[in-house]
Each structure stands twice: as structure tokens, then as C-alpha cells.
Simulated scan of single mutants.
Amino acid sequence: MNHTFSDHHQVQVVSSFLELINTSFHGAKNAICWQRNLDGDFEEITNQLSLKENVTEVSTKDLLQLNLSEKGNLAREIILNDLQLLTDFGALPSLNLIKKYNKDEEFDFISTDVYSFHVDRSPISSDTFLCTYFGASSDIISNEEVEQKILIPSIREKLKELHNGPDEEFEDFLKEYYFDLHYQVKPNGTPTNLELGNLWKLAVDHPQQNVLPCVHRAPVENEGEYRLLLIC
């Protein structure tokens, strides 16, 4: 399972948290990976946590209340440490227990949910951090292997019908409803799975960004299994 990302033209591999936050995106590299093999039983934690809604935020208090084995305790220490590192850095990490995300079924010709390849956008300079501790893990794909959905003629025509307004307002409409953030994989495009335990920093679309934003998607969950995901 532990494949090396170091030969991947999109990914820069680092070996510590300090390196992760201090390494800048450059050229085609818009995903930075602190590659780790984590000890500990993350499944035990996932199974003990209680799901209140399909995506449940887990607090530090929730984690500390679990009665865990030695391996489970080791996993908990790792998660608490990751949360602390990111908080000290100034981020707002969230630990989520996920059964499933809401699927976008409003339109049959374009999907705008997190299962669709998309980029994150922010009005201020920021990065997306994420780590999957248990369950299915997210995918990224290089920018040249995808096409913005709004540029695909058949989809664009339908969006124009949907907009049904002045041409000069069409681009604003696409942004307002986040249609412009979503991508379709080109034939032979190959996603890269982020795998378990690695802490990732992904480039976000914002005014100061000097690389293309990282195209990523949430995975379809494994049958009968929750995901445990840190994200900020």
C-alpha cells in the first residue's frame, strides 16, 4: 500500500510538519505530502465514535472520553498531536467522522458535490490540509489530466439555458453557483490516491496563489465503513 509519491510530478514529499508548512508550491507541484506510516489502531477509534449526522465533527473532548486499547491510545495521541500542530500553526482543523456527504442530484448534466473532482477557492491566502486516518481516502489529479466542466460544450450550453440571463452575467453566474470549480477527467487521466496517514497540503485558488489549484475529490466510502478525516 505504501507507495512513494516522490516520483510524482505533482507532489512534493517532505518528512516533517515543519517542512510541510514551510515548503512552498512551485511549478507543477501543487500538493505537498508529509508521508508517514502511522502506528496505532485508528479503526478502534472510528468504531467507538458516535455518528450524530452523516458528517459529524469530533471534538477533542469526544476523543479523550474513549476507552481505548494500547494501540487505540497510540492512534488517539497521533490525532491529538496533529490537531495541536495545525492549531498552533494558526489553522482551524476539524476531525470528521463521515458516513457520507450530501450528493448533488439537482442536475443530471453537472455534479457540484465533493465526490466530483474540484478545486477549493478562498478570498484570502490559505491552503487545504487533510489526512485520512481510517476508511477510503481522497484522490488528487494533475491539472493537465482534467478539463473544467464549464468549458465542455454540451455542459456549457445547458448552463446557459439554466442561467437564462444576459451574456455578460454568465461568468458571474458560474462562479456564484460554484460550477467553475468542477472538473472532468480526460480520457486516460489517472487519479492519485492520497492513502492513509499522510498529512497533505493542497493548493487553493486564491488571489496570491502562484500555482494552479490542486484538483481533488472525496472518495466513495467503503461499504459499511465510516471515514475518519482531519481537514482544514
Rank of each mutant, 00 (worst) to 15 (best):
F89G: 02
D108T: 13
N81A: 12
Q35W: 06
E43H: 11
I141S: 03
S94D: 08
L202C: 07
H8F: 07
Q35C: 06
V204Q: 02
K149G: 04
E57V: 14
N22M: 10
F179W: 03
D108I: 05
Q209A: 15
S59V: 11
L49S: 08
S125L: 09
N81S: 14
D41R: 08
T112L: 09
L80V: 09
N210C: 11
D41Q: 05
F170K: 00
I79L: 08
P213N: 10
E145H: 11
L196N: 08
A203N: 05
P93W: 03
Y115W: 05
T46P: 03
V114Y: 09
V114T: 14
K100L: 09
I98L: 06
I45H: 01
L95F: 06
V220Q: 13
I231E: 12
L51Q: 14
L196P: 00
I45Y: 01
F107T: 07
L80H: 05
V55R: 10
Y226M: 10
E223W: 01
H163K: 08
H9Q: 13
S6G: 10
V13H: 02
K71H: 11
P219I: 02
F173N: 01
L151P: 00
G135W: 03
I124W: 12
N96D: 11
F17S: 08
E176D: 14
L230N: 02
Q148K: 12
N143L: 09
P153W: 04
F89V: 10
F25W: 03
I140Y: 00
Y183M: 01
A31H: 04
F117T: 03
S69W: 01
Q184C: 10
E195P: 01
D172G: 14
F134G: 01
F109W: 10
V114C: 14
G165T: 06
G72N: 08
A203D: 02
F109A: 09
G197P: 02
G135D: 05
F129Y: 15
E106F: 13
L228G: 03
V58G: 04
G135L: 02
F107L: 15
Y101A: 08
E171K: 11
H216E: 08
H118Q: 09
